[in-house]
């Protein structure tokens, strides 16, 4: 195999695995947007709050990683419910832009609370998957990325099952497509909204755990990064389209890895945004979006 081809393949593998992580983040945004038709800029902060909170039992009484993982999810869900209560519950339909502001306010509150409590220092995260890459054939594969691959596939399957095989999923889709009609048919829109927040916030906990594990620390800069990537993936795939988010995440992951390898990191974001711009020009509804919102 030629070197360029070999290197390209190595980056492709890494890009696909990392793309799964992007897909999870974009998926969280997409689920919320799909049901609420609003977007939640505090989602990245929810993720970060969970990641930091997971460390509390570890620092206090050296709890094992499983406790950390569970704490992360539980706290994310609680923060998610707080976001729902403060930023969405009391806003009636028709105020499309208000949640944008309330969630920006929430983002500031959460981020600054964490900065205030930790002096903006990143905190060490345990490495449950070891910190040496596995040599699979000629390639070096990161164990935490393998775990992300497995967990994200599990997550996506669970969500597809939930959306298409359960009562809650049907209610969710009904609310997403026709909230008024769903209401008439006896679906409680508020209940679906709250449950959607619980679901996406649990995802936020999983994302937060893996985001912190992949860099070895929980850091105050996580929120802005995750929000940025999540929005790009969601729009690239098509608003409200869950398969679109998966495709968008994988595409962004591969693109970034190949760009860094072949062009250098200076061109990574320029290239990513240029391609996003071009795709939206050609397909104004994203890769798998049905029509412009």
């Amino acid at each position: 195999m030629g070197t360029a081809l070999f290197d390209g393949t190595e980056q492709l593998i890494n890009g696909l695995m990392y793309g799964c992580f992007y897909a999870l983040v974009g998926g969280g945004f997409t689920l919320l947007f799909g049901v609420l038709r609003r977007f939640n800029l505090a989602y990245g902060s929810t993720i970060m709050a969970g990641a930091y909170a997971g460390l509390i039992p570890v620092y206090l009484f050296k709890a094992p990683v499983l406790v950390l993982f569970v704490t992360t999810i539980v706290v994310s869900v609680l923060v998610g419910l707080l976001v729902e209560f403060c930023c969405f519950r009391f806003l009636r339909k028709g105020h499309e832009l208000a949640p944008l502001m309330t969630t920006i306010g929430m983002l500031i509150v959460i981020d600054e609370t964490i900065v205030h409590l930790t002096d903006a220092v990143g905190l060490k995260y345990p490495a449950p998957f070891g910190d040496e890459s596995l040599a699979l054939g000629p390639f070096l594969i990161r164990p935490d990325y393998l775990a992300i691959l497995v967990v994200s596939i599990a997550c996506f399957s669970a969500i597809f099952w939930l959306m298409h095989r359960t009562r809650f999923g049907r209610a969710m889709r009904a609310v997403a497509e026709r909230p008024e009609a769903a209401q008439i048919l006896g679906v409680s829109v508020r209940r679906v909204n709250v449950l959607t927040f619980v679901l996406t916030s649990a995802m936020a906990g999983i994302i937060g755990f893996f985001a912190a594990v992949s860099v070895g620390s929980a850091r105050p800069e996580m929120a802005a990064w995750l929000t940025g990537k999540g929005l790009v993936v969601m729009v690239l795939g098509g608003l409200g389209s869950f398969p679109g988010a998966i495709l968008g995440g994988l595409a962004l992951g591969v693109l970034e890895f190949e760009a860094v390898w072949f062009l250098g990191s200076s061109y990574r974001d320029i290239l990513a945004f240029s391609i996003l711009f071009l795709i939206l020009m050609v397909r104004p509804g994203g890769l798998l979006g049905s029509r412009p919102a």
Partner: peptide, 16 residues
């Protein structure tokens, strides 16, 4: 000589 952005989270390609 490799470079990245100061808030980057992925360094695989550069470290390779």
């Amino acid at each position: 000589v490799v470079d990245w952005r100061w808030l980057d989270n992925e360094f695989g390609a550069q470290v390779t």
